[in-house]
Nucleic acid binder design. Structure first.
Lengths: 138, 138
DNA sequence: TACGGATGTGCAACAATATTGCAATTCAGA
DNA sequence: TCTGAATTGCAATATTGTTGCACATCCGTA
């Protein structure tokens, strides 16, 4: 399993460092749940906060993770499933944000279709967030 | 026009204070564009920042405005068009966030339909954000 | 395997954003 | 006009995010 992490980093042309391996491992094990920045800090008590910021930024730029937006005003990150590259993200699945427990999960079966935007507008990315109550809170 | 502002506050059972009138007026004149918190601060140089936080929070709770999420990590607010109440928001229109100029506008003609969520999940609110380039930036 | 340049890390300092408590003020109904 | 309740403004503090720089680490190359 460590091997897969190394492979992921390698395929995205990223240097393997302990920090990156740990963060990536956490995101993989999160299994479709988006993790907020402060949460990652708590999970990695010995890690430097600033380095974590930069690690996540790098991951995002290289198409490894994507930011998930919700109304909790905490930046959340989730692993990209789709074929995201350095140049373009293709995360077109929806996310569900539970208002009770605050968790955000990926809903891979709900994808965003093409929307008819006004003339002159171009869409490069879409975010679809459903808010409500999740199964363990209802 | 001031009258309409008074009416809106009255119908939502909110006391009319100078701060609320000003903020509401700005949001009405924004005409479908979501305004970020720091932007509002700049527009109201004499206003107390903390009061602004509480004003917006109150407005949101009473169904007057809704938060708009995007990747700019600045909380944005827009006037509710639909029939939002104290108890439930019904803003099911999409928002467009321009990556160049940073503006966020409401796309009233794009509405979110009903999505098939996993068993046990209930959806009370949806957020659909399209990101890309707007007409004045392209 | 050792070298060296590019890349990443950790610290310090700082900026921006958000929350809480409390006393003083303002609002709106009686 | 009076009064209780809601709202405001200030202080203090917490949380989140950024930048610069010296030092450490990584990894392709020799």
């Amino acid at each position: 399993m460590d091997q897969s992490i190394v492979d992921i980093l390698k395929s995205h042309r990223l240097r393997r460092t302990p920090m990156r391996m740990e963060v990536l491992s956490l995101l993989i094990n999160a299994n479709g749940t988006a993790i907020a920045h402060p949460e990652l800090e708590r999970m990695l008590p010995n890690a430097d906060r600033i380095t974590l910021y930069r690690t996540l930024k790098t991951f995002e730029e290289k198409g490894l993770v994507h930011q998930v937006v919700d109304t909790s005003n905490a930046t959340k990150y989730a692993l990209c499933r789709d074929h995201c590259t350095e140049h373009q993200h293709h995360d077109d699945h929806a996310h569900f944000h539970c208002q009770d427990c605050g968790k955000t999960v990926c809903l891979d079966n709900i994808t965003t279709s093409n929307f008819q935007v006004p003339a002159g507008y171009t869409v490069s990315q879409t975010h679809l967030v459903l808010e409500g109550t999740c199964d363990s809170c209802s």
